[in-house]
């Protein structure tokens, strides 16, 4: 076990997978050379594996996606980095029309086993185009997987699994967790499944499901609420599309009181989909209406009013307490 940040864990995952599979490549804006990405996620990879496998792409996201898909067609487990999740939008056509459709539209003859990595999330004074969570744009595209690690352990294991997967995977990394999250993780090789949510903490009064920084808020609040004798089941949704219905339903039924948290605007969000699953299949186990705590109905997010937009740790704790008292 060695202590690493979330960002280091991602970097380690790529180093290990590059060494394991000579077909793996990574590219994107400012990904190559000594810079290794604007956040440093790919630092050291070019020096270690050469600039044919680790390189800067021109500044065009559709091109980044299309190049990756073409490599995928030839069996390369390519990693395409979009510098910010906000910048993924010019590549939507390539991701939806090509990557997500390739296997199905050829009945398995052609596939696109690639990873689209991208940092998402607010709280970094990034304004409208460096703060968004764009995962909802892609949730609902069969053929595509959307995953996001919210722990250091998962940062490494989930990225390794995504690189090895034969499906196209959209890999969302919370940029605020890059350096703020540190933990001891195993030095040996391990992977985390791409279709399983994870119960991070057992509890029997309320169930909270979230990902990213909202999950950190939930874990902290769960600890604080123990003093008030409130026992919280905390679920890291982790695999955002398709969702892990089994884990979600088991955790929802366990306490009957469910709080879903997203830093994104609530409408058409990932947690909406979670709420729908619970509404459809867990009615008789509910002890309270399913609660959704999420960003307001406003574009995310104002540079100056970022704190007002984002769901705060205090709001999370208050919502959890209120649900416990329901």
């Amino acid at each position: 076990m060695t202590e690493h940040t979330y960002l280091e864990a991602l970097n380690l995952a790529m180093h290990e997978e590059f060494a394991r599979d000579p077909g793996v490549v990574v590219f994107g804006e400012d990904v190559g050379g000594d810079k290794g990405g604007v956040f440093g996620a790919t630092k050291g990879l070019a020096a270690a594996f050469g600039d044919q496998r680790v390189f800067n792409s021109p500044l065009g996201e559709s091109g980044i996606a299309g190049l990756a898909i073409g490599l995928g067609l030839m069996g390369h487990h390519a990693i395409a980095e979009f510098q910010f999740a906000d910048y993924i939008l010019p590549a939507v056509n390539q991701i939806m029309s090509e990557a997500a459709r390739m296997r199905y539209r050829t009945a398995g003859d052609w596939t696109a086993p690639i990873v689209f990595r991208t940092p998402y999330g607010g709280g970094v004074h990034g304004g409208f185009y460096h703060s968004q969570t764009t995962d909802k744009v892609f949730a609902g595209q069969p053929g595509l997987r959307i995953v996001t690690p919210s722990t250091v352990y998962d940062a490494k294991g989930l990225l390794k699994a995504a690189i090895r997967s034969e499906d196209p995977v959209l890999f969302y990394e919370h940029k605020r967790l890059y350096r703020s999250l540190k933990a001891d993780i195993p030095d040996e090789d391990y992977v985390v499944p791409l279709d399983k949510a994870q119960v991070l903490q057992q509890g029997d009064d309320i169930t909270v499901m979230a990902y990213g920084t909202m999950l950190q808020h939930a874990l902290n609040a769960a600890k604080a609420l123990q003093a008030e004798d409130i026992s919280t089941e905390v679920v890291d949704l982790r695999t955002l599309y398709p969702l892990d219905q089994e884990t979600i339903l088991a955790a929802a039924k366990k306490t009957g009181k469910v709080l879903l948290i997203s830093e994104d605007t609530k409408e058409a969000s990932i947690i909406n989909n979670v709420a729908a699953i619970i509404a459809e299949q867990a009615l008789f186990d509910l002890d309270a209406p399913v609660q959704q705590l999420a960003g307001p109905l406003a574009p995310g997010m104002s540079y100056a009013l970022e704190d007002e937009f984002l769901v705060s740790a205090e709001q999370v704790q208050a919502a959890m307490r209120e649900l416990a008292q329901f």
Binding site: G66, L67, I69, G70, N93, S97, R101, R105
Partner: peptide, 19 residues
């Protein structure tokens, strides 16, 4: 294989060629 949203294949070809 190609789709109907035209010209995507031009970019796919760069990937195939890079391979």
């Amino acid at each position: 294989s190609f789709g109907s949203t035209v010209t995507t294949q031009y970019l796919l070809a760069t990937g195939v060629a890079y391979a």
